[in-house]
Amino acid sequence: MMLSSSPYKKSSHSVSQLMQLVIFATIPGAIALFYFFGWGVWFNLIVCCSVAYASEWLIVKLRNRDPKKVLSDYSALLTAVLLALALPPLAPWWVATIGTLFAIVFAKHLYGGLGYNPFNPAMTGYVLLLISFPMAMTTWLPPQSIAAQAPDFISSLQLFFSGSDSQGNTLNYYTLNADGFTMATPLDEIKTSFSMGYVFDEIKNKPIFGDWQNVGWQWVNLAFLAGGLFLIVKKAISWHIPVSFLAAIYITSFLAHGYDPQLNPAPMIHLLSGATMLGAFFIATDPVSATTTNKGRIIFGAAIGFIVVMIRNYGGYPDAIAFAVLIMNMAAPLIDHYTQPKVYGSQELK
């Protein structure tokens, strides 16, 4: 007999609609990435999405489930999109491929598929890549406005698939700035400069930081912020994690900067560089691997923000969203356990 149980009315939104909405909300960020870093972001998106579809279809077949049904929830596509947006734009195609494969097959389906993965799949894939291919994963093009020469579409395609374009230039050639210096992301720049003995005031004058925060990166972050706010307005995500995450980043970096302004970047640099906004609104809010109580979400977000600043300021990696999220994923069940809401009528109990 078909299971029939009240209620017989349902609100209209479904998991697949939720996933589609989140994918939709990444569009401003993707466009900003394209504007500042060129064609690579589309290549990554295409490769990640195709690999995600193919690998999910295969693994679901192997698990004896109905691939059509599983693929229609759009969760694999979302994982692919988030990973693609986190990758350096012209990292080789096999980077995107391996990352997506690992995210879908290992981080998601070997744990039981949607709803069962303890770790954020996109970030698991990202960390695998970061540890395995550190060179490829940290070679970012400079923002096109300050780049000496930006690869056009054909060159980008060639770089993406073969590592060098028809003129024989490799990716390194394009990472030089107008002054002939190799450039990295602002966070990379800070990390390397600190290790070379520069202080923050000197680092700030480098071209990548521009007149207002970081060239390019601040717009990318603001674009993701806009998409994130849209998600909150649409009630696709709750405000708790992003707000506590950003507040924690601000407060922690403010204290560190106040303690030693020459060795710790200013709060606005933290807020508007790297994957801060992508992480705050799109990564840390993945419901499956995050905490579920509202109080727990505030703790979860704040802890991620704190860890991010700690790793950025004192750790070995320039950015830290992926590590911070994965660490807190592990703590989510514990946080949930200790932040249960007070059930109706229990307040009066003395």
Partner: peptide, 22 residues
Amino acid sequence: PSTALPCIRCGECADVCPANLL
């Protein structure tokens, strides 16, 4: 009744529960 998808722990149920359960 349609075929249910897995729980994605979005927590919307907790937000609407009048008994404040999880």
